[in-house]
Computed example of a mutant assay.
Amino acid sequence: MMRSSPSFLEHALVAVEAQLQELSAALLAPDPFALQTCSEQMRQVAIDFVAALGGLQGQVLSEPLQRRIQQIHATLSIHRDSLARLAAVADRQAEVLLPPAESAPTYAPGLGFSAGVPGAARIYSAAG
């Protein structure tokens, strides 16, 4: 199959859609290794799709094909935003369990206070 044929583009688009469904399921699954594997596979099918799309330069895509591509774009954007939120939550949870090694001062050094000055306010330090 030629890399610039419409059938190659259709095959690449179907692969992206199928992998996106697997990725969506992996996001809900408790197995982080499945998510990593699906993410790597998603990256590869996306690369293949971009190559197929690049081979059709100058050709107009049909309206249904454009809608499918827009739907993939929207779904990937939602997943990316969700992963960013999950990463932020995971970072916060990790900080609760494992506080940073160095306690950051409440006031920035640019305000005339230094971290080594006794009596510098520390909002989150334990009493006692």
Rank of each mutant, 00 (worst) to 15 (best):
L65G: 01
I123R: 03
Y107I: 04
G110E: 15
Q36V: 00
Q93D: 06
L65Y: 12
H11Q: 12
A104M: 10
S7F: 09
E10Y: 13
S5Y: 07
S7T: 10
R67Y: 04
V117T: 13
G116W: 00
G55R: 14
G55T: 05
S5Q: 11
A104R: 08
M2Q: 11
A90H: 08
Q19D: 05
V96E: 12
Q36G: 00
T75P: 00
R92S: 07
T75Y: 03
I47D: 04
D91L: 11
S24A: 15
E22I: 10
P30C: 03
I78V: 13
E102Y: 02
R3E: 03
S103L: 04
R3C: 01
A52C: 11
S24E: 15
L13D: 07
Q44N: 11
S5C: 06
Y107E: 05
G110N: 08
S5V: 05
V45N: 00
I123P: 04
E40V: 08
E10I: 05
D31V: 02
L76I: 04
T106H: 10
E10G: 00
A87L: 12
G119M: 08
A84M: 08
L83K: 05
L65V: 07
I123C: 11
A127P: 01
L23H: 02
P100T: 06
I47E: 08
G110D: 15
A29L: 06
F33V: 02
L98E: 01
V89N: 08
Q41Y: 01
A15K: 08
L23F: 15
V50C: 08
G58A: 02
D81Q: 13
F8C: 12
I123M: 07
S125I: 11
V16E: 06
F49C: 09
R43T: 13
A120P: 00
S125H: 14
G112N: 13
A87V: 05
A108D: 09
A74N: 04
D81S: 13
L61K: 13
S103H: 11
E40R: 15
D48W: 07
G55I: 05
Q71C: 06
D91A: 15
S62M: 06
E17Q: 14
S62F: 10
V96S: 02
L27S: 02
D31G: 05
S77I: 03
A34V: 10
L53T: 06
D91C: 08
